[in-house]
């Protein structure tokens, strides 16, 4: 598969309400190319809903239902279960559509977590996409469970103290048939993962790293470049797991095997305004040392998990 062979289908119609350089609409376009026309989407409150445009118009070409914040997991399973008898009793003809939820990190890590955890445990038949921009960007950049350590937000003005959660790993340990992480800088890897998820029945979880230019304070043009730096420094790891068997992908696998040295994390931090205070701080070396230790620990941990 190469870029020229990607399907023509577009999930986004020009004139969206999203900010210039929005990673969520890029992600939806890529995901849409893999999912195709026969799909139903669930949207919880997030930037993806604010981007839809003004009612009664929408910029999304796929059927989407706006649901309340905590309910993506429960609604995804419910819609999928409600569709099953309609098709088995021939009330509806053809192939059952793919049900997917497009949820931000707030709706995944914090507010929607119990519904998500229950859906994964029940193995409900839908795909849960988390587009992780590491903050509540829709409401003006508040801290979430996905916000990394030392990042200042409006609710952690001196930089967040705690580390972010590893929700993809938590989902993996719910033992669903498919879990993956992806990045916009590796679009064909993302496309392949979504296509694979589509072919599997049961609960599937894909988390996509989404550098947000307004919250992370970098120029809109660098959205993809920052995604790439996150992977090359090891700040975001690419992996997938089928039936609990984890494998690291692409650059992340090369970093774990030592075939490739990670870029200094400073390259990644320098690209974002949200770390400007850290780079100017007299304790800069201490902070960077901590960040590097955490990157090393995560990489070793996931490489060890891959050996299971």
């Amino acid at each position: 598969m190469n870029i020229k062979e990607l399907p023509e289908i577009e999930y986004i119609i020009p004139g969206t309400g999203a900010c210039a350089g929005c990673p969520s609409t890029i992600g939806l376009r890529l995901v849409g190319k893999a999912l195709g026309e026969n799909a139903i989407c669930l949207l919880t409150p997030s930037c993806a809903v604010a981007s839809m445009g003004m009612t009664p118009k929408t910029c999304y070409s796929f059927p989407a239902l706006n649901i309340c914040f905590a309910s993506a997991g429960a609604s995804g399973g419910a819609i999928s279960m409600a569709l099953d008898p309609l098709y088995s009793k021939k009330r509806l003809e053809g192939e059952k559509p793919v049900v997917f939820a497009w949820v931000g990190d707030g709706g995944t890590y914090d507010i929607g977590f119990q519904g998500l955890s229950a859906a994964a445990e029940r193995n409900d038949d839908f795909i849960f996409f988390c587009y992780n921009n590491e903050a509540y960007s829709n409401t003006g950049n508040q801290r979430s469970g996905a916000t990394p350590q030392y990042v200042p937000t409006t609710t952690s003005p001196l930089g967040k103290e705690m580390l972010q959660k590893n929700v993809p790993l938590l989902m993996l340990e719910h033992r669903p048939p498919y879990v993956a992480t992806a990045s916009l800088a590796y679009p064909l890897d993302l496309y392949r993962k979504v296509e694979k998820a589509k072919s599997i029945k049961g609960f599937r979880y894909i988390e996509i790293h989404m550098p947000c230019c307004t919250s992370w304070k970098f120029p809109a043009a660098e959205t993809i470049e920052v995604s790439r730096l996150a992977i090359r420094t090891g700040s975001w790891l690419l992996w997938e797991a089928e039936n609990g068997k984890l494998s690291l992908n692409g650059v992340t696998a090369a970093l774990a095997e030592g075939k490739r040295k990670p870029l200094p994390v400073e390259e990644y931090l320098k690209a974002q305004g949200r770390y400007a205070w850290l780079l100017k701080s007299p304790d800069k070396d201490y902070y960077i040392g901590n960040i590097e230790n955490n990157i090393r620990r995560e990489l070793e941990f996931m490489a060890g998990r891959a050996k299971l």
Binding site: I13, G15, T16, G53, K57, T58, C59, S61
Partner: peptide
Amino acid sequence: QPISRPVIGAGGLTGTWR
């Protein structure tokens, strides 16, 4: 009913943001 339909320019003429 709060139903939206896919239309080009749902967020307005966004070229003016440039």
